[in-house]
């Protein structure tokens, strides 16, 4: 079966998805991608003229909340930071990203 998708494209997708991939992983994922795309290609066989997409199944609409402060759910600073590996004087810390100021 001929390849439906190229390694280059898969690499682009990995960047878009913020997924770090080794060369080995890139190759195996490209093969897996191919396999999946072959399976899901059958959608075009179904006629969907006049059909609206079904984004929700419940039929619910207008579910909103009143503009009230929920003190019970709000964390203290300690709770908010409790699971982070890197914090500094009340902040989460990440390495500086240089190109997007």
């Amino acid at each position: 079966m001929s390849a439906v998708i190229s390694k280059k494209l898969v690499d682009e997708i990995a960047h878009l998805a913020n997924i770090p991939l080794s060369d080995k992983e890139l190759s195996s994922i490209t093969a897996a991608f191919d396999e999946t795309l072959q399976v899901i290609d059958n959608l075009s066989e179904i006629d969907t003229t006049g059909i609206e997409p079904a984004h929700h199944t419940t039929g619910l609409e207008n579910i909103m909340r009143e503009d009230v402060v929920d003190n019970e759910r709000m964390f203290s600073q300690e709770e908010a930071l409790s699971q982070a590996k890197k914090t500094n004087v009340g902040y989460f810390v990440v390495p500086r990203i240089l190109h997007n100021d």
């Binding site: 009230v68 402060v69 929920d70 709000m74 908010a80 009340g90 902040y91």
Partner: peptide, 21 residues
């Protein structure tokens, strides 16, 4: 989209008006 206090400038300290959402 959550019930946290909307007062970023007046908050006492960073990350004190947050919740799971």
């Amino acid at each position: 989209f959550c019930g946290c206090k909307n007062d970023p400038f007046g908050a006492e300290k960073p990350n004190s008006h947050t919740c799971p959402v």
